[in-house]
Design a protein around this nucleic acid. Sequence first.
DNA 1: TATGGTTGGCGCAGAAGTGAGCTAATAGGG
DNA 2: CCCTATTAGCTCACTTCTGCGCCAACCATA
Lengths: 210, 210
Amino acid sequence: MWRDETGRSLADYPHPSVAVDVALLTVVDGALQVAVHRRAGHAAGELALPGTFVRIDETLAAAALRALREHIGVTGRSPEQLRVFDDPDRDDRGRVLAIAHVDLVPRDVLDDDVGLVAVDRRPRLTFDHDAMVAAAAEHVRARYRRDPDPAGLLGAAFTLAELQGLHEAVLGAPLPKDTFRRHVLADLEPTGGVRTGTVGKPARLYRRAG
Amino acid sequence: MWRDETGRSLADYPHPSVAVDVALLTVVDGALQVAVHRRAGHAAGELALPGTFVRIDETLAAAALRALREHIGVTGRSPEQLRVFDDPDRDDRGRVLAIAHVDLVPRDVLDDDVGLVAVDRRPRLTFDHDAMVAAAAEHVRARYRRDPDPAGLLGAAFTLAELQGLHEAVLGAPLPKDTFRRHVLADLEPTGGVRTGTVGKPARLYRRAG
DNA sequence: TATGGTTGGCGCAGAAGTGAGCTAATAGGG
DNA sequence: CCCTATTAGCTCACTTCTGCGCCAACCATA
């Protein structure tokens, strides 16, 4: 074990605790929603994002996935970092740095009893979790502005109308049909198939271009 | 002091140490450059970004500013977070999470003996500091694509040519003159003055619009 | 004081992007 | 089996954007 010139290891110096909090987002009822739960133990009863302390030999992604599993019984996909929340008074238990994460998953990986609230009409959350949800929504919205379906919420093949519906749900605003199609087409390739069994002219199916 | 049901405080649980590393950027010779120093103590002699461990009651910004002061004698402006580097093996002294920061300052706040290397032609840095510099450059380049002069490197009043030169230095690529002007003009307001004492037709002076 | 060199910035033609409307292609009902 | 409702997706007129070229305004020099 490494020791400095005074004989102390890193852990001998007082240092902040580190937590992860995860804004788990999904699309339900044509709107972006975030999973919340009521805390037990400290700050019991308060609405909060799933979170946990980071263990000493754990990566942040592993801690984020563990928080999702332990608090809401969900297997996350690929949590991404947002930023560190470092207000010295943010947690009355002591000095805690919270690393906010976001993960976007399809609705069907969540149990029915997971609490969901729409990000644009959400109740107050405890700690600084409101700011985390705002940052999470902004993050996925920016990603969907750049790429057709970065989180892979649609399956292998989808129609342009299905993709537009997803984008409108994520962004929380309607999009102009023609412009939307022209933009995403550059990043898609047709599968050759069409969506049948629907009313109207059958729509071509596309996949993400490689 | 808060204690859990087993009588332990937060600090009683083993948890990672937290460090900040700062990519201090500036523009010299028409190119984006980053301040580096040769480490003393651990990993002595290696080229690295200024960094330090975060003290328990310190904000991240305060730790970042302290790292700049202690290692290269510079007063930073406003360090911004990039992301957390959490590879378990990134530091052989123990478990350390490093929170990378970026700060962009004018050349004249740096002493002449501060080591500077161009971000696009830089030598290998130690730890994961290469990835931090890459993230820092990408961050400031993205900001300069959005805003005329977010870091305020130019003074209160400047010409469009001066602003374009700054952008080309930050981005590391030439920009089309007319398109550049039209885009930034939306976020600027003329001061009414002109830049005199130069060759050619005097250029109008602008300031950031409020 | 005139003249040439140099840089700022505007106008205009062509390119690119946008959105409304029209045609195509299917399901379902009479 | 035909007709209608409905949705997909193309076409075309219009708007916006881009970049070249030209004129303007100043300094330096003779």
